[in-house]
Design a protein around this nucleic acid. Structure first.
Length: 334
DNA sequence: CATCCACGGGAAAAACAGGGTC
DNA sequence: GACCCTGTTTTTCCCGTGGATG
C-alpha cells in the first residue's frame, strides 16, 4: 500500500507547490534583489496554521540554493528557539560561526558581534512563529545588517508588531505582507492527491474519500495529511490495496488525535497535570484550577508560573481561555 | 462605586549549565 | 571532585489594568 512513507510526512516539502503560486511568485519577486547582492525588504507571512506558510518559506529556500549560488538561507523555528541566545545561536550555527562559542568564555554580546562580522554571501533568515520570540532585539539587529534579510512568519499579523519595539514597528509597517488563507476543499483534495500519487500504490484511494478527509480537515493541510497518513497505515497493516470508507472514518479522529498528541508530548509534567485537570472538568474557573493543581502536584509552582504555563498551552491550541479578566474560563479545545 | 479576582508585563531572584581552577 | 564564574533560563514577586459583582 505505502510505497514512499516520506511524502506523507508533515515536514515533507514538495518540489512543486500547488495552490500557492501567487504567494510563491510574490515572495520570489521580493527576494529577487538578492541575486544582485542587494538586500531584499523584510517579508511578513501570516495566516492560520496548516495553510503552507512554513512550506512556502522552506520551498523558497530550496529554490534560492538552486538558482542563486551566492546566497545563504537559514530557517529558525522560534517556538523551539524562543530566547535571544538560542535563536541567535541557531543562526550562527547554520552559518558555521559557532565553532568556539562557550557560555563561560563568551561575553554578553559576543553573539551579536559574530553576526555583525559575518561577511559571507547575503543571507535570508526565516523566523517561523516569530511571535514566540521573547526578546525581539534580534529582529532589530538583523534589520540593521545589510547582509541579512528576514522572512517573518506568524499566525496573526498584529502579533508580530505587538511584540516588536517602536524603532522597528515603523520600519516594518512598510514591509511586504503575504496573507495565507485556509485551503478550499478542492485545493486540499488535490494536495492530498499528489501525495497519494507519490507515496501510495495506484487506486489506493478514491477522490470521494479524499473529499471526505478534506471536509474533516476544514482547510488545515496538517490535519488532512495526518488523517490520510493514519488511513494509509491502517490499510497497509491490514494488507489491503485499497483504503476502505471504514478505515477513513476511524482515521479522522485518529488523525486529529495524532496532531494533538504531538503537542501534548512537548508539555512538561506540570503542564500535563493542568491539562488533565481541565480535561476532567470540561470547564473550569481559574481559582478552582489553581487549587486542584496545588493538590495534585508534589511541589507546586506559583500561580504566576501556572499562568505562564497556561498561556503556552493556549498557544499550542490545546487549551482555550475565554474571557480576559474575572470572566476567565479554561477548557480544552474541541 | 468599592471590592474582588484574574491577567500579564516587567524586574529581580533563584536555579541551571558548562566551562575553568585548585 | 568540590568550588567558582559567567551567561542563560526559569520562577517568583510586584503591580497596574479591567471585567464582574453586589
Amino acid at each position: 500500500m505505502i510505497t514512499d512513507a516520506r511524502v506523507l510526512r508533515q515536514e515533507f516539502v514538495p518540489g512543486d507547490l500547488e495552490h500557492r503560486d501567487a504567494e510563491t511568485t510574490y515572495l520570489s519577486e521580493t527576494l529577487a534583489p538578492i541575486a544582485d547582492g542587494e538586500t531584499p525588504e523584510t517579508v511578513i507571512m501570516h495566516g492560520p496554521s496548516g495553510v503552507g506558510k512554513t512550506c512556502v518559506a522552506k520551498y523558497m529556500g530550496d529554490q534560492l540554493r538552486q538558482k542563486v549560488l551566492d546566497a545563504e538561507f537559514q530557517y529558525v523555528n522560534c517556538w523551539q528557539h524562543y530566547s535571544r541566545y538560542r535563536a541567535l545561536h541557531r543562526i550562527l550555527e547554520g552559518l558555521g560561526q559557532t565553532l568556539d562559542i562557550h557560555r563561560q568564555s563568551t561575553p554578553r554580546d559576543e553573539l551579536f558581534e559574530r553576526l555583525r562580522q559575518y561577511d559571507g554571501p547575503p543571507c535570508v533568515v526565516v523566523l517561523d512563529e516569530v511571535d514566540q520570540l521573547e526578546d525581539t532585539s534580534l529582529l532589530y539587529h538583523l534589520h540593521e545588517l545589510s547582509q541579512f534579510s528576514m522572512i517573518l512568519i506568524a499566525n496573526r499579523e498584529e502579533a508580530i508588531l505587538r511584540t516588536v519595539d517602536e524603532r522597528l514597528t515603523s520600519r516594518l509597517t512598510g514591509s511586504e505582507r503575504i496573507r495565507f488563507d485556509a485551503y478550499h476543499e478542492d485545493e486540499l483534495v488535490s494536495i492530498m492527491a499528489a501525495r497519494v500519487r507519490w507515496g501510495l500504490v495506484e487506486n489506493a484511494i478514491q477522490e470521494e474519500q479524499l473529499r471526505r478527509i478534506a471536509d474533516a480537515a476544514a482547510g488545515d493541510a496538517r490535519i488532512g495529511l495526518s488523517i490520510l497518513r493514519s488511513a494509509a497505515r491502517r490499510a497497509d497493516r491490514a494488507g489491503d490495496d485499497r483504503i476502505t470508507d471504514g478505515q477513513i472514518e476511524t482515521a479522522i479522529p485518529a488523525g486529529r488525535e495524532e496532531v494533538r498528541q504531538k503537542s501534548i508530548e512537548t508539555l512538561i509534567h506540570h503542564q500535563r497535570v493542568l491539562y488533565r485537570i481541565i480535561e476532567d472538568h470540561s470547564e473550569i474557573e481559574p481559582s478552582e484550577l489553581y487549587d486542584a493543581y496545588r493538590e495534585r502536584v508534589e511541589e507546586p509552582k506559583s500561580d504566576r508560573t501556572v499562568r505562564n504555563y497556561l498561556t503556552k498551552m493556549v498557544h499550542y491550541n490545546l487549551v482555550i481561555a475565554d474571557g480576559t479578566s474575572r470572566d476567565r474560563i479554561y477548557r480544552l479545545r474541541e
